[in-house]
Design a protein around this nucleic acid. Structure first.
Lengths: 193, 193
DNA sequence: GCCATTATTGAACGATCATTCAAGTCATTT
DNA sequence: AAATGACTTGAATGATCGTTCAATAATGGC
């Protein structure tokens, strides 16, 4: 036996960056070769094909975002301050621009829905995990009486995710940072009211 | 002289349908030939190239959606009932599925942003027109005291567009109609409060 | 009814695509 | 140190892409 020569996580993160920059379909194997440093044959050996690389990249993205998510809600005085910080962070990603402006899962969802069941499956899992995180957040908030019981944690989590989807899409049209800040503030207020 | 043999608007609507089904990049000239009935040469004669066809299709989409928008706010007792009907209609598009589930401008924005300036320009115009429509709606609502003056019509319009973006993205993951209805109700309430 | 002009046709083009594979390279085992 | 077997390499493959263009058909002006 001989173990693989490359760092799988690093390769996947490079692939994510390449996919986000051009979109899945416009990212050629040559682009991926340049981004990951892996030759086509190695990619096919490790991930079967281009779509397999996408699926693996989406899974890596989920792992990274989940870890990131946890950091925001570890050791805060209140969960809502954690949520507020999370939204500020998301806003920063939108404002600063660059490849991170777009959510990889959301982008892949838009581009590939109804076309590749295997991809849709992994994206659905990613989004389900994300939503479960927010449901947990609002359950904590409800238990600590940071929010009232007028709406269920699930309903709040769904509204929040919808809002973040919308915020990131809105950011594509290059509005001013002020507008995005205002939209974020309003979203936080609406979802915690 | 000899005038064109095809109905430009019909061709563009067929092209929109094709683009929405597969996304711009995955829609080949063969697909477009099948959808529009026009041979490649004719398309290039009329629209210069594939991207030109996309731009023309986006302009047609804007015309059609603008006309549709006006219908919702012509002759209502109150503008807010018009808005409510507009949101119900949008919800129906999301729920019923099919190609119309996706907003063509939004899809093109996701797929082509930062890559084709000419496309981004026309999409920005589309979205600006749409937002101007909602600003007008909330100005009317404010004048008729259907909403209070706590937030400006512009701020409300921006939140609403963000919400609709989010709703349509959320719909991609095939949630139940009940969840989408609840999200729509909440959006209407938040934006009119 | 003829001519000039323009639209339409559809085959053909080079470029690029995802994918394959035989040869080369290297770590591990014996 | 030789042999093994998996990983890496990168050129080659056939398919498909967007685009072009010379030939053909059809319209409007005279």
């Amino acid at each position: 036996m001989r173990s693989a020569q490359f760092d799988r996580e690093q390769v996947l993160r490079s692939a994510i960056e390449a996919f986000v920059c051009k979109g899945y379909n416009k990212t050629s194997m040559q682009d991926l070769k340049k981004a990951t440093g892996l030759h086509p044959g190695s990619i096919y050996c490790a991930f079967e094909n281009k779509q397999g690389l996408l699926v693996a990249a989406l899974e890596q993205y989920n792992k990274d975002r989940t870890a990131e998510f946890s950091d925001f809600f570890a050791g805060n005085r209140t969960v809502l301050t954690g949520l507020r910080r999370y939204l500020d962070y998301t806003l920063d990603l939108c404002t600063l621009g660059g490849p991170q402006k777009v959510c990889f899962s959301q982008q892949a969802l838009s581009e590939l829905t109804e076309q590749a069941p295997a991809v849709e499956t992994v994206i659905s899992k990613n989004l389900h995990d994300w939503q479960a995180g927010f449901i947990w957040v609002f359950e904590q908030a409800l238990a600590a009486e940071e929010v009232n019981a007028d709406r269920s944690p699930t309903a709040r989590a769904q509204s929040l995710i919808m809002g973040i989807y919308g915020l990131r899409t809105y950011a594509h049209t290059h509005p001013s940072a002020q507008v995005l800040t205002q939209l974020t503030d309003q979203l936080f207020e609406d979802v915690c009211r």
